[in-house]
Design a protein around this nucleic acid. Structure first.
Length: 688
RNA sequence: GCCAACAUAGCUCAGCUGGUAGAGCAACGCUUUCGUAAAGCGUGGGUCGUCGGUUCAAAUCCGACUGUUGGCUCCA
């Protein structure tokens, strides 16, 4: 999986996760006959977390609110056909089939109706019925379109229950609150399209999202949190702080790193490179494209074709065409054939004729050119394979900030976290079976160092094992046992709590993922380590052992950051733009109180720059307050106020973004502390 | 990809039912030389996402396209 690593781009992981969670995405692939990974079917496991198995009071409130919503919907739109309305992690929704396209005004209307229902203080009454009675009840209520299907989902032998509040009766496992007035605070949030049963083959219904709480205060707090999340959205901060740009003319999902954003990325890369050096990695560089055949060998191409950019013409073919002395017309015709098949591909993906393609007699083999690389491993494998290896050479650790390209559906794109081109802090370790455990541990500690340094202390580790009931994995049982034990042992040795999740492995081997929870409680899968017994076989890799016999090496794929794009996006939100000094694009803002101390500022600026500090002198003709304000808004970690007093004493008045006014201190002293803070990559220390 | 909403100056936004564009901030200039989150005055800046249609007249109405945002998992 080299693939996998790649896929997620940080994401790979993510994508994989999403794919598991989103039935439609999986189904889409399945339908196209591409539900299989190169090494076997994608293992789709749904962890069933039934709300009614362990409902909390809040979930009861929310689930009840969804019934109140349904009650209101039927009052306002009597012809609505209801599907399903569960509680969710942050609220509830109800899916309805309705001719009328819901608008924001409708939400207001529905909210008002819900208030009425709540004020009526209806009681929720449960009744258990036989299957036949249930069918009758559903038919009587005119909701057979979806509810009968839902009824069929209830396993034989399980109780079938209905809940009634007021005039509204719904097939429902419950439980509910006793009276509608127990729903103290609710709000309808948005309207969205949602496929019936999450399957794009089914009709798309209208989903109304809302949330509910036990008190108005909690609702207000929730909305406040949402507002804060909006404020720290990396897309907003990225624009405000000028960290990155996405330009339509360049293309969707392609990140342009601005000078400021590049500083952050560069610092992160320098940081990790230092760690790699300590761990004995070798840095390599490989190109952005590779021959299609390479990815056919690795097995990735046919299966991931959907998520790759179309192949590009092999320049060798162009050269050959020229050699053959083709006329201009011939050449144009052959190029045309290529571009035609390219057009056909574009049209196929779009599902309509974006580019009219009436000449599709393209020779498919002409497409057999180059691929924008979707993952780095084949290139690294070829470096390994370029010469014979002795067991004494191993482990060989090849690292590269490798940029890869994936074709993501347009609806999936999102700022830096879901893109079409991204750079993985990738590495492939080639080692003996005996070395796997130790090497995995090394990779894990690397991820841990990264997270610790950045203050991402709230994370969990997931060890993905094979599904014992499935034989769809590649490789032998012995190898799997060894690989899984290696992962398990490594996770134990790491000393971090971890969960073992059968069915979460990649097909070629088990993996260990780090799932980070951010300040607002969202989870991000960032670092990943994967053990691979398969690609070495496909590429017939070997090394000569101590027994003078050839042996198969084992590969480890790992990316502590995942992708630089995604990681930076998460980091921006993690710090809310308030980066620690070592990462901040601008570390120090020099603010002369007036032009009188401008020269002193220039003097300090030169000294700071000489020490490698990223400092900027504010030469604006503003009052002090305005300059301070600007520095604060731009989230500069340190602002040094320079007045006559400071100039005379060779001092600075320090204002820290994290701690506020820290008073006057000798410049030399301040600089020593600052350089130390940067060198040690310290996190911003809050005022005590 | 699918559903919905949105697209006006660098940013945030105003511009009602059609009569050909405005504010604040930012930028730039001048005045001010200032002590910890906004000094005053002035100047420049937009083919209103693109293309097409309706109309005497379109930022405004209609259509297509492009892009952005929120969704498309949490089993009755």
């Amino acid at each position: 999986m080299a693939l996998l690593i790649g896929r997620a781009e940080g994401k790979e992981n993510c994508k994989f996760v999403r794919r598991r969670r989103r039935g439609w995405a999986i189904d889409r692939r399945g339908r196209n006959g591409r539900g299989c990974a190169p090494y076997g079917p994608v293992i789709v496991h749904r962890t069933k977390t039934s709300l009614h198995m362990s409902t909390s009071p809040l979930e009861e409130i929310r689930h009840s609110a969804s019934h109140v919503l349904a009650t209101a919907i039927l009052r306002v739109f009597p012809d609505a056909k209801l599907d399903i309305g569960p509680a969710t992690e942050s609220g509830f929704y109800y899916d309805i089939d309705l001719e009328h396209k819901l608008t924001a005004e409708d939400l207001t209307k529905l909210e008002a109706e819900m208030k009425k229902v709540i004020d009526e203080n209806q009681s929720f009454r449960r009744s258990e019925v036989s299957r036949e009675e249930a069918v009758e009840l559903i038919k009587k209520s005119g909701q057979e379109r979806y509810k009968l299907g839902r009824l069929a989902d209830v396993p034989e032998g399980e109780a079938i229950s209905f809940y009634q509040n007021g005039e509204f009766l719904d097939l429902c496992a419950g439980p509910h609150v006793r009276y509608t007035k127990q729903i103290k605070a609710f709000k309808l949030l948005s309207i969205a399209g949602a496929y019936h049963r999450g399957d794009e083959k089914n009709k798309q219904l209208q989903r109304i999202y809302g949330t509910a709480f036990a008190s108005k205060e909690e609702l207000a707090q929730y909305l406040e949190r949402m507002e804060q999340a909006k404020q720290r959205d990396h897309r907003k901060l990225g624009r405000d702080l000028k960290l990155f740009v996405i330009d339509d003319d360049v293309g969707q999902g392609l990140i342009l790193w601005t000078p400021a954003g590049s500083v952050i990325r560069q610092e992160l890369q320098t940081f990790i490179l230092g760690e790699l050096q300590k761990q004995g990695y070798s840095q390599v560089f490989t190109p952005h494209i590779g021959k299609l055949t390479l990815y056919k060998t690795s097995g990735h191409f046919p299966y991931y074709k959907e998520s790759q950019f179309p192949a590009i013409m092999d320049p060798d073919q162009l050269a050959q065409i020229a050699h053959e002395g083709c006329s201009c017309a011939d050449m144009t015709a052959r190029l045309d054939a290529v571009s035609t098949s390219f057009q056909a591909e574009i049209n196929r993906r779009a599902g309509r004729e974006v580019i009219p393609a009436d000449r599709t007699k393209a020779d498919e083999s002409l497409l057999d050119g180059f691929l924008l690389k979707p993952m780095n491993c084949p290139h690294h494998i070829k470096i390994y394979a370029s010469q014979p290896h002795s067991y004494r050479d191993l482990p060989l650790r090849l690292a590269e900030f490798g940029t890869v390209y994936r074709w993501e559906q347009s609806g999936e794109l999102n700022g830096m976290t879901r893109v079409r081109g991204f750079t993985q802090d990738d590495a492939h370790l080639f080692c003996t079976e005996e070395q796997v455990a130790q090497e995995v541990l090394g990779c894990l500690s690397l991820v841990k160092i990264v997270l610790t340094t950045l203050g991402m202390s709230d994370y969990r580790v997931r060890v993905g094992l094979r599904d014992p009931d499935s034989n769809k994995y590649t490789g032998t049982k012995e190898n799997w046992d060894k690989a899984e034990n290696a992962c398990r042992e490594a996770a134990k040795t790491l000393g971090v709590p971890f969960t073992e999740e059968p069915g979460e492995a990649a097909f070629y081997g088990p993996k260990i993922d780090f799932v980070v929870r951010d300040v607002i409680g969202r989870e991000w899968q960032l670092g990943t380590v994967q053990v691979d017994y398969n690609l070495p076989v496909r590429f017939d890799l070997s090394y000569i052992g101590a027994d003078n016999q050839p042996h198969r090496p084992v590969m480890i794929h790992r990316a502590p950051f995942g992708s630089m794009e995604r990681f930076c996006g998460v980091l921006i939100e993690h710090f809310a733009g308030d980066f620690p000094a070592w990462l901040a694009p601008e570390q120090v803002r020099l603010v002369p109180i007036s032009e009188k101390t401008l020269d002193y500022g220039k003097d300090l600026l030169a000294q700071l720059k000489a020490a490698g500090v990223r400092a900027v002198l504010d030469e604006h003709n503003d009052k002090l307050g305005a300059k301070i304000r600007r520095a604060e808004i731009e989230k500069v970690p340190y602002t040094l106020v320079l007045g006559q007093k400071e100039a005379e004493a060779k001092a600075v008045s320090v204002r820290s973004r994290a701690r506020g006014d820290e008073g006057v201190q000798p410049f030399a002293e301040y600089m020593e502390r600052l350089v130390q803070e940067i060198r040690t990559r310290a996190l911003p220390a809050k005022k005590v």
